[in-house]
Write a protein that binds this DNA or RNA. Structure first.
Lengths: 92, 92
DNA sequence: AAACTATTTGGCGGATTCGCCAAATAGGCT
DNA sequence: AGCCTATTTGGCGAATCCGCCAAATAGTTT
């Protein structure tokens, strides 16, 4: 599934947990789209979810995943966009 | 582009440099396919190429990228295959 | 130059992925 | 219960990606 969005999600969750609605608003895509991205990340074990009230909060389960970005940045003068490209490469 | 193959390439190049023909033989896909994978990795800055004679040798340019795998393993009891899945998620 | 090996590039069908909409599920509130 | 908000799931067309073949490019050898 889509990169830039998932990358963005990971970066956001690295700061603090967010509910789906929150991420959806920031991303600007349809809620169902964001929900599916989170579903994939969850299935991969990268994030965990926590239902409170009628909303679900997601948070990063693998903080060290951020080192990956640092690693890349140390070599490339990479912007977030370039990282997306990179991840696209390694992943998908 | 494809995951398992690119993941395999990264792991192989982590050990030592390889020419395209070498990787192609190990992977079992068409040479053009492998070449394209390498091309993508190169464009992303993950590998560098070095032409000697009539063959091109590729090597890892971002060794720390391997830490990423270690990171994932520390959380998941992930096999190489699972890592491929994970990368598919983060990437693609 | 001709022949041969190694690699890259273009093209194309097939498969996968993406993102939206609509419908279903879940919890909260009146 | 009925209504509303939040989220997930199913479905589908559009876009992307993959892997092979064929052709082009580059270097070696004779």
């Amino acid at each position: 599934m889509a990169h830039p969005t998932r990358l963005f999600i990971i970066e956001e969750l690295a700061k603090e947990e967010h509910c789906v609605c929150d991420l959806t608003e920031q991303i600007g895509a349809d809620v169902s789209t964001v929900s599916k991205h989170l579903s994939v990340l969850k299935q991969a074990g990268i994030v965990t979810d926590d239902k409170r009230g009628n909303q679900v909060f997601y948070r990063l389960r693998v903080p060290c995943i951020l080192n990956f970005f640092g690693c890349v940045e140390s070599v490339l003068e990479a912007s977030v966009l370039d990282q997306a490209v990179l991840l696209n490469v390694v992943g998908k």
